[in-house]
Each structure stands twice: as C-alpha cells, then as structure tokens.
Amino acid sequence: MAIRVLAHFLPGDSVLEVVEPESDWLDIRWCHEDDDETLHRELADAEVIWHVLRPLSGDDLRRAPRLRLVHKLGAGVNTIDVAAATELGIAVANMPGANAPSVAEGTVLLTLAALRRLTVLDQATRAGRGWPTDPSLGETVRDIGSCTVGLVGYGNIAKRVEQIVHAMGADVLHTNTKPDGTDSWRTLPDLLAASDIVSLHLPLTADTDKLINRAALDTMKAHAVLVNTSRGGVVDEPALVDALRDGRLAAAGLDVFATEPVDPDNPLLRLDNIVVTPHVTWFTVDTMRRYLIEAIDNCRHLHDGRDLVNVVNGR
C-alpha cells in the first residue's frame, strides 16, 4: 500500500525526476508553504510530511491523525514543535550534512560580497559611476586570504567552509561547546576578538538564542565582517543594526533573520553595508537531490517496518 506524503513545497522538474520512479509506493501531495488551506486539508491523510521552513505547530500536527514521520529537509528542527510530535507519537527526523556543500559555498559567497562591497559597487556601476571614487575602497576591502576567519560552531558546514577559505590562504579559528584538542580552537570571546571574519554555524537553541549580542559584537574588530547562514535568532538584530550603523562592525552577510520571511521594514534592510539573501544558501539542485534521496530512503524504512534514520526525538 502506498505511503501518503505531504511535501510542503512545490516541485520543479528536477524534483519530479527524482520522485516519479517511486510513484508505485509513494503517494505524494504537493503544497506551497504559504497555502495553509491546502496544508490543513492534506494533513488529514498524511502519513509523512516533508518539511522545509514554514513552522509546523502542535495544532498543525494534531490535524494529522495518521502522521508517523515529519522529515525535515535540512538539519535544523527549530521550526517543528518537536515536543508536540513526541507527545503524539510522531517521529521527527532530519538530514545532517546533506546541505553542507551548498551552504558552505553560500557562506563564502556572502563573505566575499560583504567583504568586497559587492552590492554598493553593483549599484554604482549600474548608475553609470564606472570608476570607484571612494578612496576608502582601497583602504578597507580585503582578500579572504589575508584574513583570520572565525567559525562559531564546527559541524559539517563549518568544516567545509574551513576547507574552502584555507585554500584561499586564510587562517582559521573555530569554537564549539568544549575544547577539542586542536590548535585552532578558541573560546568564543577570544575567537571574536581575533577574527576578521566571523561565520556562524549553530543550531538555534535556548543556549544559542542571541548568543551574538551587544557585548559579543563589542569584542569584535571594527573592520570585521559577520556572516550568518545558520539561524537568525542566534544574533541580536537590534544590536547588530547599531554596530553596523555606528561603524563598530564593517559589514555583514545574512541569509537568515529572526523572523522569516524577513519583514520589509526590518532596519537591517536599510543599511548599505549588509548583503542579504532569503534563507536560500542551501537551495540548489544538488542539495534538493540529496534531500529527496534521503527522504525517500526513510520513507522506504517506514514502508518496510525498519528503524528510521536520523530521528531526533527518540521515537
């Protein structure tokens, strides 16, 4: 008997190419993340949800009496009410490492764009100002290879970023929950003080909420760049606005925000020393293919009565 899957996103051709060969045992229904009417209708029969970003609340999960698995297409499960899922006997699984190549490249992209003032120069060029007239350009723009890059969090993505920037000539420091015996490990305050580029690679938890607060930002170098491709809530956004506006931080590259989709009135969006993208560093054909392969494999486990892979709530 086919397993009913509610895929909480709309497919492109490359997605359909991966899933169509499984149509004899997977009954997939597609739902745009903004379409709550379809979501609530389809929840009634869903056995599996393939979840991306739109938060799944306990109320959502209670609308799904047949639901057995919420499979996050990604690593962070902060957008799922895991406690409610556990109470309802629903397994929650994720995909650690599947998006690491894409997010690592996106991190370096944002780093370069912020470090090299890409958006400002792009706008100036489009406005007909072909040669830079700002003398500070040659005084502040730097090569990654001349910088110390500090990685806050040291999982799959951070380690891939480390490989890339090492190849570009950068010195790399990292911090994590405890010393790991390597020469590059630092405490968070020491890493922030020593780094020209600080890149965040953390889950959003009670311990990491607003970890990069006003005091943390004040310890960073005035010419430093902050890059966040993890979760927006790790950064105290009002404090970041002040630091960027006051010149206590040179620039930032952000793919994530405390509230998503980001509010058009968010003051971060009015600053010209920031580069932003809408939580898409993971979103490539290659990552989607890896996600789908893992999601289908776990559905096969469910279909065959085998233990699920990468379950985060002990079900």
Score class of each variant (00 low, 15 high):
V5M: 01
L6W: 08
L6G: 06
L6D: 06
A7R: 02
G12C: 06
V15C: 01
S23D: 04
D27S: 13
D27E: 14
I28G: 03
R29P: 00
H32E: 08
H32F: 01
D35L: 11
E37R: 13
E37I: 12
L43M: 15
A46F: 07
E47V: 01
V48K: 06
V48D: 04
R54P: 00
S57P: 03
S57A: 11
P65W: 05
L69F: 03
H71M: 14
A75P: 00
A75V: 15
G76T: 05
I90H: 08
N94K: 08
M95W: 01
G97R: 06
A98C: 06
A98T: 06
A104F: 09
L109K: 01
L112H: 00
A114W: 00
R116H: 08
R116S: 03
D122Y: 09
A124Y: 01
R126H: 15
A127W: 02
G128L: 04
G130R: 14
W131G: 07
P132T: 11
T133V: 15
D134A: 14
G138P: 03
E139P: 00
V141E: 04
V141S: 01
G145D: 11
V152P: 08
A158P: 09
R160E: 14
I164H: 08
M168V: 04
A170G: 09
L173F: 13
H174K: 13
N176R: 15
N176T: 15
T177V: 11
T177I: 12
T177C: 08
P179M: 14
T182C: 09
D183P: 09
S184L: 09
W185E: 06
W185S: 10
D190M: 02
L192C: 09
I197N: 03
L200C: 10
L202Q: 08
L202D: 07
L204N: 06
T205P: 02
A206G: 14
D209T: 12
K210Q: 13
L211G: 04
I212S: 04
N213T: 04
R214P: 00
A215C: 04
A215G: 07
V225H: 00
V225A: 04
V225N: 02
L226Y: 02
S230R: 08
G232A: 11
G233E: 00
V235E: 01
D236W: 05
A239S: 12
A243I: 02
D246T: 14
G247L: 07
A258C: 05
T259I: 09
T259H: 11
D263N: 15
L269D: 02
L269A: 08
V275A: 13
T277F: 03
T277S: 15
P278Q: 13
V285T: 14
T287S: 13
Y291L: 09
L292A: 03
I293A: 15
I293V: 15
E294S: 12
D297K: 09
D297R: 15
N298E: 07
D304K: 10
G305Q: 12
R306M: 11
L308S: 06
V309I: 13
N313P: 06
G314I: 12
